[in-house]
Design a protein around this nucleic acid. Sequence first.
DNA 1: ATTTTTATCGGAAACGTTTCCGATAGTTGT
DNA 2: ACAACTATCGGAAACGTTTCCGATAAAAAT
Lengths: 336, 336
Amino acid sequence: MKHITIKDVAKKLNVSISTVSRAFNDKYDIKKETRDLILQTAQELGYRPNPIARKLIQQRSFNIGIVVPEFENSFFPQIMLGAQEVLHNKGYQVLIMQSNYSWEIERKNVETLVDNMVDGLIISLTSEKQNNEYYKELLKQDIPIVFFNRAVDEIPASKVLFDDFKWALFATEHLIMQGYRDIVHLTGTHNLTLTKNRLRGFEQAHRKHKLPPGKIISCGFKMEDGERIAQELIDRNEIPRAIFAANDSCAIGAMNVFKQHGYKIPNDIAIVGFTESKLAKHTYPSLTSVEQPTRDIGQTSANLLLEQIENKGFFVPQTIILNGRLNVRDSSIKIK
Amino acid sequence: MKHITIKDVAKKLNVSISTVSRAFNDKYDIKKETRDLILQTAQELGYRPNPIARKLIQQRSFNIGIVVPEFENSFFPQIMLGAQEVLHNKGYQVLIMQSNYSWEIERKNVETLVDNMVDGLIISLTSEKQNNEYYKELLKQDIPIVFFNRAVDEIPASKVLFDDFKWALFATEHLIMQGYRDIVHLTGTHNLTLTKNRLRGFEQAHRKHKLPPGKIISCGFKMEDGERIAQELIDRNEIPRAIFAANDSCAIGAMNVFKQHGYKIPNDIAIVGFTESKLAKHTYPSLTSVEQPTRDIGQTSANLLLEQIENKGFFVPQTIILNGRLNVRDSSIKIK
DNA sequence: ATTTTTATCGGAAACGTTTCCGATAGTTGT
DNA sequence: ACAACTATCGGAAACGTTTCCGATAAAAAT
């Protein structure tokens, strides 16, 4: 069973292919009756315009590409849901690829997406260096891109970000106001802007409350990282009174190890996480965490991208910073 | 800055476009030196063959489409990781779309993927009815598809499935052997084969151990479903001794409500879930659950699809059923 | 009644490739 | 030395559309 092409329906009705094409696209230049006739017989024959051919000549696809590092943690999935919502409404389809935290794969992802002539890209960077030149090149070629979550100043594109500094400050302040001192910060992956900002927030909170600087331990974003650090702290008998972790996975990893060793949360050690994960509500005790407006991030990114697509050429990059929320739970309740 | 096409590099070297094309594709019919020269100058010019045009004529894309209902629960993401692994190795790129549990969106997803000329599709059905005719049509057009997780007999395609019956039986048996009686089954979404199979397993376990049939409550797959049912049971004061839920979300929802009302897990109520979610390890108490071999499902699906692509035309659909594991945790430990 | 406009359509080029067919020149065999 | 082959390349059709340009006939204007 071969593909049914525009020629088949043209032949069937003894009209030219231009006319059939017009039936599908033009608003004028075609009689209403012939249009209806064509549309109807096309339907009967099961004809669908081949978008590959269409792309080739129109140079646009009504497809949007999204590239994220992973989607195991419901953070990115929720963002994608938000983006998909507004994109679908505008008639765009969403193609998703995951880079697996590898910048090489990310590069390949973006390349295939571009090769498939997506009209725009929404990207969360895996590396803050490796592909920068490539992205600059893409932007020069006038391909609309908006970055979210992770971005670099160096790349002149639209971004939607989270105020990591502010919310890290709030989170730390929360611990301080609950009466905790001797707070340790477990940082995220090294060299990431977002890591640095959370760290800055942590430090600022101490300064603001005239406390001596808190201890900083380089950790990482994975659960194993948190487990490892907790174990080290126990081994060295350097148990802090409270922990502010750069994300939830790391916080939960640490919490588990501490619990296994008989420490009570929060009575012995209070813990606050970051980037509300699905787990936070269900751990024991439940984990206090900063929640990012995931759906909003997705929607805002999508809207920014659409704007950019429509005003191609003379669009000035914007950076939008969104607000979050601190979900206070059992892991950091007040000291008695 | 315009796209650089094959013509540009042909002109630059005073060769024909056929020769350039051959440089990129043929193994013979071209002198080694010219090939190297062409490849090199192509590189310098920044030329990349336009896959859209290539698709148009070759009718293949080296892209594979995956359609899943969602990816918030790490079940599908892990499967996709597995699939991506083997597909990347074979030079395929993976395009992902989410149907959001809507068969209309699923339909649109598949259509755009097909329109984009993916070489094959990996799909987890959202509805067991609505799109059946459409899928049959696609198969008639010789488009390779493999279904996983959810599938229907009616569609003659390859499938990789889980033995829901067997593992529901094991899970129930586990509760029985731990000494629990008066076990209630919270079923999944109505009418799904997978729901029926888990139910059958639950019943079979009772028969096998010569117990009176267990109580069955129609529930659903979401956390709210579990919460609702638990609340109802409490209101009616019909507290069971143990629960086998059709999935983890539902199990956790119920567990939370019971806990809030002062019931102890497992001392008052034991609980077993299904389809190991990331949460299971971290709830309090940790949740016993049947783990599906997610990565394996992805890999197997991909391999099946590749086989099918290579033997297009004379390929007989296979159904592969994979094995799981029962992760015993605190929520179902032995009665004292 | 003749000219001008309008509505509707067909022809053909274009998008960027691949691939079949044939041309040319050099190489081998007899 | 002549036929037959081989290696290497160019020309052109094809993939399935869109779109520009022009053609035709009917409608409107003069």
